[in-house]
Amino acid sequence: MRILSIFCFLLMSVTSGYAQDTLTIEHQPIIIDASYAGGNTEDLYYYVNNNFNYNNVKKEDIPAKAKNQPYFVFYVVFAVSEDGKAFEFSPKEISAENSFYKEAVRVIASTRWNVATKNNEYKKQFMVIPIKANIGDF
C-alpha cells in the first residue's frame, strides 16, 4: 500500500506541473481630459458671464427665432492647445460673423486650460461650450 501511495504521488506530480513562463498585462493608456484651469464648470460659466460685454454686440444679430425670448443659446466649439490656450474656434447654431459669437470667442480666448494628455503626452481635445445670451434688455 505504501508503494502504491508513493507511485500515485509521483504520477500526479509529473502530470500536473506546467507553469507559465511569461506574464502578459494589457496596457491601458492613461487619458486625462482638458479642463478649465480656473476651477470647475460653474466657475467657467461665472467667468464667461461676468466678462461678456453686451456693448460689443448688435441688436440685429439676435436670431429671428429668439426675438421675443429673454435669452437664446448658441455653442462655441474650440480646441485646447499645448500651452493651455483656446484656439480653432467654430460656431454651432450661429453664424461666425454674428457679434454674439465674436464676443463669446473673445471671452473664451482669454481663459486658460489644463491640457488633455494621453500617457503624459499632449493630446488635442475639442470642447463645446453653450453660451446663454440674455437679450431681454435689448
Score class of each variant (00 low, 15 high):
Glu60Pro: 01
Asn49Trp: 05
Ala34Arg: 05
Asn56Glu: 10
Gly17Ser: 15
Ala19Ile: 04
Gln20Glu: 08
Asn53Phe: 05
Phe9Leu: 15
Asp33Thr: 04
Lys59Ser: 14
Tyr46Thr: 14
Tyr36Leu: 11
Ile6Arg: 01
Gln20Ile: 01
Asn68Ser: 13
Asp33Trp: 04
Phe52Gly: 02
Gln20His: 03
Asp43Cys: 06
Asn55Met: 04
Asn68Phe: 07
Cys8Leu: 15
Tyr18Cys: 14
Ala34Gly: 13
Ala34Asn: 04
Gln28Tyr: 11
Asp61Glu: 09
Glu42Asn: 13
Tyr71Ser: 15
Gln20Cys: 02
Cys8Val: 10
Asp61Met: 10
Leu23Cys: 03
Leu4Cys: 04
Ile30Pro: 00
Lys65Gly: 07
Asp21Met: 14
Cys8Ala: 13
Pro29Trp: 04
Ala19Ser: 07
Asn49His: 07
Leu4Tyr: 05
Asn68Leu: 09
Phe9Tyr: 08
Leu11Met: 07
Thr41Gly: 02
Asn51Trp: 09
Gly17Tyr: 12
Tyr36Thr: 11
Ser5Arg: 14
Ala37Met: 04
His27Trp: 03
Asn68Val: 03
Met12Pro: 00
Gln28Leu: 14
Asn40Val: 05
Tyr47Leu: 06
Ile25Ser: 05
Tyr46Ala: 12
Leu10Asn: 02
Thr15Lys: 05
Ala34Pro: 03
Ser5Thr: 10
Asn50Trp: 05
Lys65Phe: 13
Asn56Trp: 02
Glu60His: 08
Ile31Glu: 10
Pro63Ala: 11
Ile62Glu: 06
Gly39Asp: 08
Ala66Lys: 06
Asp43Pro: 05
Tyr18Ser: 10
Tyr71Gly: 06
Pro29Asp: 02
Asp33Met: 05
Ile32Pro: 00
Asn40Gly: 06
Tyr71Pro: 02
Thr15Cys: 10
Asn51Tyr: 12
Thr24Ser: 14
Gly39Ser: 09
Phe52Thr: 02
Asp21Leu: 15
Lys65Ala: 13
Tyr46Leu: 13
Thr15Asp: 01
Asp43Trp: 03
Asn50Val: 03
Lys58His: 12
Asn51Ala: 09
Lys58Met: 13
Gly39Tyr: 07
Ile6Met: 01
Ala66Asn: 06
Thr15Phe: 10
Ile32Tyr: 03
Leu11Gly: 03
Thr22Asp: 01
Thr15Tyr: 04
Asp21Lys: 15
Asn55Glu: 09
Ile30His: 11
Val57Gly: 06
Asn53Gln: 07
Ala19Gly: 03
Asn51Gly: 07
Asp43Arg: 13
Ser5Ile: 12
Pro63Cys: 10
Thr22Met: 03
Tyr18Asn: 07
Tyr71Ala: 15
Gly39Phe: 06
Asn55Asp: 12
Glu26Thr: 13
Asp61Leu: 11
Asp43Thr: 08
Ile32Cys: 01
Thr15Val: 12
Leu44Pro: 08
Gly38Thr: 05
Thr22Gly: 00
Ser35His: 10
Asn40Pro: 00
Phe9Pro: 01
Lys67Cys: 00
Tyr45His: 13
Phe52Met: 03
Thr41Pro: 00
Pro70Val: 12
Ile6Leu: 07
Pro70Met: 11
Pro63Asp: 09
Ala37Arg: 06
Ser16Leu: 15
Phe52Asn: 02
Tyr45Phe: 15
Ile30Glu: 12
Phe52Glu: 01
Thr22Ala: 01
Thr24Val: 15
Val57Trp: 04
Gln20Ala: 08
Ala37Cys: 00
Gly17Asn: 14
Val57Met: 07
Asn50Lys: 15
Pro29His: 03
Ala66Trp: 06
Ser16Glu: 11
Tyr47Pro: 00
